[in-house]
């Protein structure tokens, strides 16, 4: 099918530039195949992360012709061949080398989220009962492969750099005020919190976390994250918006506050589910 030029960003944190390579294209080929071909024949030190090559591990995230994609799921026949295919690393994260970025910040955010804690078992044998309809909605969130493309395009992170700061104990925290010290958890971790908050068995209240530490209020629902999700998770509609509603109910609605207090006095359990937009 002929040769195509690939214009790949090469460099490290001190700087770099695009470099052109040629690769032979065959039927059904994806961008990652071309990167491998270039590695094997022309640039053995071309750095690139990958694992499964089947869209299941979320390692090979990059920007192809300016669009955040998994390289293993971007078929060459969806790209024009008469002009160079531009490949560059994700822009929101610090560069390590070439196409590899430092995504460790995401792992630190994840650690801020209090773990799952189930209600006491439903049956004497220590097991629980849940209906399929109850778990359907969070199964959608649990499809996430942690490619961090949603974090990469989230403008709160990409343009406004709300990566928080690290305290003296090495813990990630949110600084005060409208500054870059403020932390925004990003779509990936909103979805992760949603998968816990809407888990039928979970008992932990993470609304204070969403409001204070992860600053869910900073999201203004531009839905860029949903657009790039390779798993087609309805990040905004099914995850972030319902969470925002819960936060508003919890912290800003005086009527809800009163209802909740009365409820608590009467021993009513907090509701853990909300209607969902049909996927």
């Amino acid at each position: 099918m002929g040769k195509v030029t690939f214009r790949i960003w090469r460099g490290d944190k001190s700087g770099g530039d695009f470099k052109d390579y040629q690769a032979e294209i065959s039927e059904g080929m994806v961008v990652l195949d071309a990167v491998h071909q270039i590695q094997a024949t022309q640039a053995p030190d071309l750095a690139c992360r990958w694992n499964c090559k089947a869209g299941k591990c979320g390692s090979c995230s990059a920007e192809v012709n300016g669009k955040p994609r998994l390289m293993c799921m971007t078929r060459m026949d969806t790209l024009p061949h008469d002009q160079p295919v531009m490949i560059q690393p994700m822009k929101a994260f610090p560069i390590i080398r070439d196409l590899v970025t430092d995504v460790s910040w995401n792992y630190r955010v994840n650690k801020l989220i209090p773990p799952f804690k189930p209600r006491p078992p439903d049956a004497p044998d220590g097991t629980w009962r849940m209906g399929q309809e109850e778990v359907d909605r969070i199964q959608e969130f649990r499809k996430c492969i942690e490619c961090f493309l949603c974090q990469n395009v989230c403008h709160v992170l990409r343009e406004h750099h709300r990566f928080g700061q690290t305290d003296e104990k090495g813990q990630l925290t949110s600084g005060q005020g409208p500054s870059e010290a403020e932390l925004f958890g990003g779509p990936r971790f909103m979805i992760r919190v949603a998968s816990l908050e809407m888990h039928p068995l979970d008992t932990v209240n993470r609304l204070p976390l969403l409001q204070k530490e992860l600053n869910i209020g900073l999201c203004n629902i531009t839905k860029c994250c949903t657009e790039v999700c390779p798993e087609h998770i309805h990040i905004t509609d099914n995850g972030i918006i319902p969470l925002k509603e819960r936060v508003v109910d919890e912290f800003y609605d005086p009527l809800m506050w009163a209802v909740r207090k009365v409820g608590e006095a009467l021993g009513v359990r907090r509701r853990k589910s909300l209607p969902m937009v049909n996927p």
Binding site: D12, P44, D45, L46, R97, D98
Partner: peptide, 11 residues
Amino acid sequence: APGNREYNPGW
């Protein structure tokens, strides 16, 4: 493996 030790797939 040409290149240096930083994230060098050839190495």
